[in-house]
Every structure is written in structure tokens, then in C-alpha cells.
Amino acid sequence: MTFAEKFDSFVCEGDAIACEISGLEIVARIVRDDCPDTPDERQDGFWPSEYIGDPGFIGPGPNWRQRLADARKKAEAVMAAWCNGEWFYCGIVLSVAREGVTLDENAASLWGVEANYPGTDNSYLTEVANELLPEALDAARAALARLCAGREQQAAGG
């Protein structure tokens, strides 16, 4: 039980993939994360450090100066790409429907996911969507149970 479709190697807000499982239509869509924090504000250790107590400590060993310089260069490039709008944080949001009726618009989601991150092919966006599938299916089953219970109450004159 996975999405056969995959997100493209370059994605935009609103892009989506879909699959059908047991008569349920599941759509995974990309929603821009509205948290304004920069990458270095979101991630401890974003900036590499030579100091052992810092979250970005690169570790001891041979060529540590070169490794530190390379890591700083990479972090600067990632930050520059984010500032230029080349990548963004998003949420992968799954909705579920049955026979065209939406059961849950936000059945499952994960936020703070990097979209179009430098040097990646976005394949992990599809992996996230697949990991969220069981939660979305549970939400769909719960919604169907509520609808059936309501219908039974209505039929009983309640």
C-alpha cells in the first residue's frame, strides 16, 4: 500500500499525487509551511563549528580544517538558495475521499519538510506521503464510522 505516483524532482505548492486503497481516494499534496523561521533558526547545528560543545561540531580527525571549511561552504550555499526562494519548507498533507465525498481534508500531515532542497531529487517527499498513509486510512475509517453511526441514529428516529 503505497503511492504509485511520485512527486517530481522540482515541486511547487499545490502539487499532488494520488492513489486508491480499498475504495478510498488518498491525495498527498504539498502545502507551503507558513513558519517564517530561516533554516539556521529551525535546525540546531545548521552552522558547522569547530567547538565540541556546539550542535554543529564537525568532529575531530584528520583534515578537520578542510572538513569545516567544506561544511561551512555547503551551509552558506543552502542558506543562499533558501534566501533566493530556490527551496522552501512545506507540509505533506493527505486527504481522503470515498466516491468523490471528502471524508477528511487533513487526514494526516507532516510539516517542516524541505522541498527542492539543494542536491536532492525530492524522492523523500513521496516517502513521507507513504509513511503517512496508515494514519490517513485510520482517519478515513473513523470518519466512515461516524457517518454510519449518524445514519443509524437517523434511521432509528434519533
Rank of each mutant, 00 (worst) to 15 (best):
M1D: 04
M1W: 03
E5T: 01
E5D: 10
K6W: 00
D8Q: 11
F10T: 12
F10G: 01
V11L: 00
E13G: 12
I17W: 01
I17F: 01
I17R: 01
A18I: 00
A18P: 00
C19V: 05
E20Y: 00
I21V: 15
G23K: 04
E25P: 00
I26P: 02
I26G: 04
V27A: 08
R29I: 03
I30P: 07
R32T: 13
R32S: 12
D34H: 02
C35G: 06
C35S: 13
P36G: 09
T38F: 14
P39A: 03
Q43P: 00
Q43V: 13
F46R: 10
F46I: 09
P48L: 02
G53N: 13
P55G: 02
G56V: 11
G59Q: 10
G59K: 10
P60R: 14
N63K: 10
R65G: 13
R65W: 10
R65L: 12
R65P: 04
Q66L: 10
R67S: 03
L68M: 05
A69I: 02
D70E: 15
A71T: 05
R72S: 12
R72K: 15
K73R: 14
E76L: 04
E76M: 06
V78H: 14
V78R: 13
A80E: 12
C83M: 11
C83F: 05
C83I: 06
E86T: 06
W87K: 04
Y89A: 13
C90D: 04
I92N: 07
I92T: 11
I92E: 09
V93C: 03
S95C: 10
V96S: 04
E99P: 01
G100R: 06
V101A: 11
V101D: 06
V101M: 08
V101N: 05
D104R: 09
E105H: 08
N106M: 10
N106C: 12
N106H: 13
A107F: 08
S109V: 00
L110G: 07
L110Y: 11
E114S: 13
E114N: 11
E114R: 14
E114M: 09
P118S: 07
T120L: 03
T120P: 01
T120N: 04
N122V: 07
S123A: 12
Y124W: 12
Y124D: 13
L125W: 07
L125V: 09
E127A: 09
E127N: 07
V128I: 15
V128K: 10
N130Q: 05
E131A: 11
P134T: 08
A136K: 05
L137D: 08
D138Q: 14
R141I: 10
A142D: 11
A142F: 11
A142M: 10
A143G: 08
L144K: 09
A145R: 15
L147A: 14
A149E: 15
R151E: 15
R151F: 12
E152W: 06
E152D: 15
Q153I: 03
Q153R: 15
Q154V: 02
